[in-house]
């Protein structure tokens, strides 16, 4: 029987307000760019299936958080149950880049005892003329924190797919290698199921390994 999805990963998207978090997610999940989107209050939800390898589908549950600082008291509760995160800044807004530190600290202090695989995203790369953050310095920062870096544009659909799929692949590798384990009471990674048979994570992992060989 075909599994609908192998795993479900919960991703959290953070970054200053108005860097374009919701637009990026909407582009990824709905395939369109909304000129106007409501400011996010608290958290919004999105989901999409991603096929990282033929027949291997991952369900992504994306939590889109409000960027405004005062919402952090709410959103910090959402780190704990996330396995991955996209940390966005706006390449035309230097301040949002400088805040990346704060966001990381915030996340790391609230994710214990788990950890989050982060991807640093320089958003609005279509606005090259207004760029305030160079690609080099962003890559340097990402390297310092052990993250990948990608520049995206929701408006022009640049690297949007890549950003999410790369992050998903990274997490999938970690799950397959056992670096990330499925645990009861933790929502970060959930294993998919074949109808009537609930697989334990090990079974699924073994199964996928066999397929690889």
């Amino acid at each position: 029987m075909e599994t609908i999805w192998l795993y479900q990963f919960r991703l959290i998207v953070i970054g200053d307000s108005t860097v374009g978090k919701s637009c990026l997610i909407r582009r990824f999940t709905e395939g369109r760019f909304a000129q106007v989107s409501d400011p996010t209050v608290g958290v919004d939800f999105f989901s999409r299936l991603v096929e990282i390898e033929p027949g291997k589908r991952i369900k992504l549950q994306i939590w889109d958080t409000a960027g405004q600082e005062r919402f952090r008291s709410i959103t910090r509760a959402y780190y704990r149950n996330s396995v991955g995160g996209l940390l966005l800044f706006d390449i035309t807004n230097r301040r949002s880049f400088q805040n990346v530190h704060n966001w990381l600290e915030e996340a790391q202090s609230h994710v214990q005892p788990h950890s989050i695989v982060f991807l640093l995203v320089g958003h609005k790369c279509d606005l090259e003329a207004q760029r305030q953050v160079t690609q080099q310095e962003a890559e340097k920062l990402a390297g310092a924190f052990g993250m990948r870096y990608v520049e995206t544009s929701a408006r022009d659909a640049i690297n949007v797919e890549k950003a999410f799929v790369d992050l998903t692949r990274d997490i999938f590798e970690l799950v397959r290698n056992g670096d990330i384990k499925i645990q009861d009471g933790w929502e970060g990674v959930k294993s998919g199921f074949v109808p009537n048979t609930v697989h334990s994570s090990e079974e699924v992992t073994k199964g996928s390994r066999q397929c690889f060989c």
């Binding site: 200053d16 307000s17 405004q68 600082e69 005062r70 230097r94 301040r95 400088q98 805040n99 704060n102």
Partner: peptide
């Protein structure tokens, strides 16, 4: 334009 070092909510 620069020195957004005071990213306090109030300012923004």
């Amino acid at each position: 334009s620069d020195e957004g070092a005071s990213p306090a909510d109030r300012e923004a």
